Amino acid sequence: MTHESAPQGDAPHELLAAVRDLTRQVRVAQRGTWFPLLVFAAITLVAIPVYRYGPYLDLFDTCRSRADHTVCSGENPTELGYWTVALVLAYAAIAAFYTRRSRRRGVGTPTRPYVVVGVALAVLMTAVSIWLTFHPLLPQPADPFSTDPVQIEAGPAVWLIHGLASPLAVIGLALLVLAWVERHWALLAYTLVYLAIGMVQGNQVIHSSSPWFFLPYLLVPAVVLLLGAAVFALFRPTTEAQA
Rank of each mutant, 00 (worst) to 15 (best):
H69Q: 09
F97M: 09
T70Y: 10
Y82R: 05
N76V: 05
C63D: 07
R100N: 14
L89K: 10
Y56L: 04
R101P: 00
G74F: 11
V71M: 04
Y53A: 08
R100A: 14
G74L: 13
W83M: 03
V71R: 04
L87H: 00
S73T: 08
D61H: 15
D61G: 10
R100Q: 12
L89M: 12
H69L: 05
D58F: 04
C72L: 04
I94W: 07
A93Q: 08
S102R: 12
P55A: 03
A86K: 07
C72T: 04
S73R: 11
A92G: 13
R104P: 01
T84R: 04
T84W: 10
Y98W: 15
S73D: 06
F60M: 11
R66E: 15
D58I: 02
T99I: 08
S102C: 07
D61Q: 15
I94L: 08
S102W: 13
V71I: 10
T70S: 11
A92L: 14
G81R: 01
F60W: 15
H69W: 08
Y51R: 08
G54S: 10
Y51G: 00
T84C: 08
P49N: 09
D68Q: 10
R104A: 13
F97K: 09
L80N: 14
I94Q: 05
P55V: 01
W83P: 00
A90R: 09
V71H: 03
L89T: 08
Y91V: 00
N76C: 11
R101Y: 04
A95E: 10
T62K: 14
D68V: 03
R101D: 01
L59G: 01
C72E: 04
R101A: 01
A93G: 10
L89S: 09
Y82E: 06
L89I: 10
R66V: 07
S102V: 06
P77L: 02
Y51T: 03
A90V: 07
R52P: 00
R66T: 07
D61V: 09
S65G: 07
T78I: 06
I94K: 06
R101K: 15
L59S: 02
R100Y: 12
Y82I: 02
Y56A: 00
F60Q: 09
Y53E: 11
T84S: 06
R103C: 00
T99S: 12
Y53I: 02
R104K: 15
Y51S: 09
E75W: 14
P55L: 03
R103W: 08
G54D: 10
Y51P: 00
